[in-house]
Amino acid sequence: MEYVGIVPAPPLDRFIDDIYCLTGVPRHRLMNVPPMPSAHLFLHHGGPVRLWDSDRSVPPALMTDGWFMGVWTRRFLFAYPPRVRLVGVHFKPWGMSPFAGLPAAELRNRWAPLDAVWQRSADRIRNRIGDAASAAEALRVVEEELRSHLAVAPARGLDLVRHTGGWLETSHGTVAVRALADAAGVSGNHLAGLFKDHVGVTPKRMARIYRFARLIVSVDALRPVDWSGLAQTAGYFDHAHFSREFKDFTGHTPTEYLALRRRFPAERRDPQDLGPMPAD
């Protein structure tokens, strides 16, 4: 598939990593997605997209227009239609908060139709995207929509979460949560409460996801992989814990994951796109 993406101009870049457009025929229809340090907005112009939670007690969903997804702490699966035209937004973990207008915990490990979050917006936005003459124009449409929904004033605690979340991002999750709270001048419980409001998960859980993302990005499937060395660099100092978390997050052992990556190399080199794996 063809990828076209932009980093939005300020102030959106405080909350969004990129806005992108995917078009074409997918190499793989069914994808397995581990937890990654982002939340999402998807707007789809192709056939319906099916989503499954790895928690089998959660019923699957069929999405036909647009939907929001919060930060995930476990893997999920989705199935592309035969032909894809999708516009998406990679929010930073705290980035959906000033646009969605609801506690981030309500979208943790969940998806919600666009109209349930932005009332009666899906048809209008999809029509504007459909009228766009190019992918670049479609991205400008979405950027305008995001600007129109950005809260004028940040909600209580968002600036603090953005600052400490940025520290987690740059340290790849290796900074101690206690150090985050001390640097912010708040208690650990207070910081955790703010993260639940604006990210949907605690700083400790977010650190785990950043740590895992760093490890995945470090894997070069074309060369021999020193899993112990990569795990230690990423901040895993207990090999048994690393193995359990890797299997929980991907559904594979490290050896199985490496074999899969060698069969189906990732097309891009960033956490959002190195994470998803073929599941068909």
Rank of each mutant, 00 (worst) to 15 (best):
N109S: 13
R120E: 10
R124S: 08
R108P: 04
R75M: 03
A234V: 12
V142N: 00
I216D: 06
A61H: 11
E137G: 02
D65Q: 10
R29D: 00
R128Y: 05
A105Q: 09
G157C: 04
V4I: 11
R74F: 10
A213V: 05
R208C: 11
G130M: 05
M63H: 06
V141A: 02
A221F: 13
D248Q: 09
P8V: 07
W67K: 04
D238F: 00
P98Y: 01
A184V: 07
D18V: 02
R261I: 07
R262Q: 15
I16S: 09
V117T: 09
T255S: 14
L22Y: 12
R75H: 09
E144L: 06
G165R: 09
V201S: 04
L12D: 09
F212W: 09
R223I: 06
L215N: 04
I16G: 07
D220H: 10
G165I: 11
R263Q: 13
F91T: 02
R124N: 04
R268E: 13
H149K: 15
Y257E: 10
D238T: 07
F15Y: 15
D197G: 00
V87M: 07
V25N: 04
R262F: 15
G165L: 09
G185V: 08
N189V: 15
Q272C: 03
K204P: 00
S228W: 11
L274V: 15
V219N: 11
D55H: 02
D13I: 05
H149W: 09
F246P: 11
E245H: 05
H172D: 14
S121R: 06
L30S: 09
M63L: 13
A112S: 15
L62D: 04
A9T: 13
S57T: 15
Y3L: 15
Y210R: 06
P59A: 00
S57R: 15
H239K: 07
M96V: 06
P254V: 12
A192D: 02
L146F: 03
M206V: 05
Y257K: 02
A192V: 01
A279P: 01
G66K: 04
D280S: 01
G251H: 10
L41D: 06
T202R: 08
V175H: 03
A207I: 12
V58Y: 07
A240M: 06
M31Y: 01
Y20C: 02
W94K: 07
A61L: 11
D65G: 09
H40N: 10
P154Y: 05
N189M: 13
L260C: 12
R83S: 11
S121T: 03
M1N: 08
G200Q: 04
A39Y: 00
P203V: 04
R156A: 15
G47I: 05
D280R: 00
L22E: 14
W94S: 05
W94Y: 11
L51F: 01
H252S: 07
T250E: 00
E2M: 14
A135Y: 06
A61Y: 05
A151G: 03
R262E: 14
H239G: 00
P26L: 05
R56M: 04
P26Y: 05
S54T: 10
T73L: 05
P60S: 08
W227L: 11
V175L: 11
R120I: 01
R110K: 13
F249W: 09
S148A: 14
N109E: 14
R208T: 14
C21S: 12
